[in-house]
Design a protein around this nucleic acid. Sequence first.
DNA 1: AATCTAACTTGTAAAATGCAAGTTATTAAT
DNA 2: ATTAATAACTTGCATTTTACAAGTTAGATT
Lengths: 123, 123
Amino acid sequence: MKKNNKKIDWRSICPISSSLDVLGDKWSLLIIRDLIIHESRTYSQFLESPEQIATNILASRLNLLSHLKLIERVNLKSASRNNAYQLTKGGEALKPIIKSLGKWAGEHLSEFNPNMLKINETL
Amino acid sequence: MKKNNKKIDWRSICPISSSLDVLGDKWSLLIIRDLIIHESRTYSQFLESPEQIATNILASRLNLLSHLKLIERVNLKSASRNNAYQLTKGGEALKPIIKSLGKWAGEHLSEFNPNMLKINETL
DNA sequence: AATCTAACTTGTAAAATGCAAGTTATTAAT
DNA sequence: ATTAATAACTTGCATTTTACAAGTTAGATT
């Protein structure tokens, strides 16, 4: 039997806190970012991103994001090989938030990460 | 000599990734949230929030956020006792992003955290 | 001057992450 | 049809981060 370990620890009834209960880590929003930029991505394409996520972390995050219905397979019925992921409506709704985060970073973190690219408002 | 361990590991030149390099965890944005709601907070007031952050984590996050100039002491010159923290301009700039996150959670996570409060657009 | 307590720090256990290697099931090649 | 190649994971273990309890310190209060 496949392990489907998706019990989420909700720390409070606060929606901001709840958003961080699921997205508050260094990788989940980068997966969403890749799907914003590329529309769809396979497991091995995610591994090509410059931040170099570990394979086990990628697999567990893809699972969690799928369970939360923020991403889904392009081909809902077929096998996983060459079956890329894409954003659902819920995932798409994160687009403006992630773009704002990028804009914010360009405006307030370049002092600390001088190599960082500046982003325009439309990504 | 006080340990001032603030070397940040920038994983890439991507601004979205860079924002997560500093804010991508379960606690940093909750500290910002508390300062959005209350204007200013002392160390022990942060500990009263329902999510129950550990004291060592709180101290290290307050340090990092101060170093990044996202928060500062209300009294820049006086000692730390009863000297609350508040948002800087850079921290204030996160307000709309955090509000959007709360709104997003209310719309897309209530299925998974049924106790979660719905938030109105103006927090 | 003595006491109190807010603001931390420290030590250690538990959990999450990172890394290398291994497994499995499609797809492609012969 | 059989074999080979490889995408999509999984596993085991080392390292790092987080969590919890307890201790320390210096400025405020009595």
